[in-house]
């Protein structure tokens, strides 16, 4: 069984952290992962930077272009991660846009992920229908969990379909926005979290976008299995050293 699936069985709320690989410095990847694990984070999303990240707000955009300027490539990321399973056992997910994977070759990419010990992928611009027709069998062949997004605008019918083809968790985008919005959660989110929670889906849900402190983490995990922090962590790591990651995690829970 996949590390993500095992983790989700634990009777606890999941804290997942996103960071952009190659940021702040090209070779921070492994030490960020190691420090996140020792800081008691439950899951890590390694962002493969892309030149045109459509679903991301200014913070992740800026970290992605800096990472690319630093020289990050798909090949370099895979090289940095090649021995990662000798030191960490935390579930690892690669999050990235579809074009770099397409250029690497989807099958080659998945194969490499399996060799390294990556547990899942989040590809925001790989649509559900294309995935289920063209790529599902490849992902499964290499033991990868694929994670889909839902939003407050996603219909019940579509959520059920997404649930049916998912095998890890559902990424619940907290509100209609790109990453990094700071508005906090109001009645709309509460209603949405409740609505999804009442659907009794087979896959647990993890909330992302707009989680940036103890309050928003708490609100999100009141209904959902866990929450993902991205932009707030990127901002932290820009101003602090890798050794201070524990402080960040302690500020959340």
């Amino acid at each position: 069984m996949n590390r993500i699936q095992n983790k989700l069985k634990e009777n606890k709320k999941i804290l997942s952290i996103y960071f952009t690989a190659g940021y702040p410095s090209l070779n921070d990847t492994v030490s960020i992962i190691q420090n996140l694990e020792t800081s008691d984070v439950d899951m890590i999303e390694i962002g493969l930077p892309f030149s045109d990240p459509l679903a991301d707000g200014p913070t992740i955009q800026a970290s992605s272009s800096k990472a690319l300027k630093n020289g990050m490539t798909t090949e370099i990321l895979f090289n940095q991660l090649k021995d990662i399973r000798k030191t960490v056992s935390i579930p690892l997910i690669i999050m990235g846009y579809f074009n770099p994977m397409l250029q690497y070759g989807v099958e080659a990419f998945c194969k490499k992920c399996q060799e390294i010990g990556i547990d899942g992928l989040i590809i925001p611009d790989l649509p559900v229908d294309v995935y289920s027709e063209d790529y599902k069998s490849t992902f499964e062949k290499y033991g990868l969990v694929n994670v889909f997004l839902i939003t407050p605008q996603t219909s019940d019918e579509r959520i059920r379909f997404i649930d049916s083809i998912s095998n890890g968790f559902i990424y619940m985008v907290s509100s209609a926005s790109v990453t990094g919005s700071q508005s906090g959660f109001g009645d709309d989110q509460k209603y949405y979290f409740e609505r999804i929670s009442n659907m009794d889906l087979k896959n647990p849900q993890i909330v992302g976008f707009g989680i940036n402190n103890r309050d928003t983490f708490k609100q999100a995990t009141q209904y959902a299995k866990g929450a993902i922090i991205g932009s707030a962590f990127i901002k932290f790591i820009a101003e602090n050293t890798v050794e201070n990651i524990k402080q960040f995690v302690q500020s959340i829970r």
Binding site: L54, A55, F98, P124, D125, L126, P127, V128, V130, F148, L149, I150, T151, Q153, T154, S155, R158, V173, A176
Partner: peptide, 11 residues
Amino acid sequence: GGAYIPEMLYP
């Protein structure tokens, strides 16, 4: 062609 869009744009 096709529609390679994030779920947020789907509706």
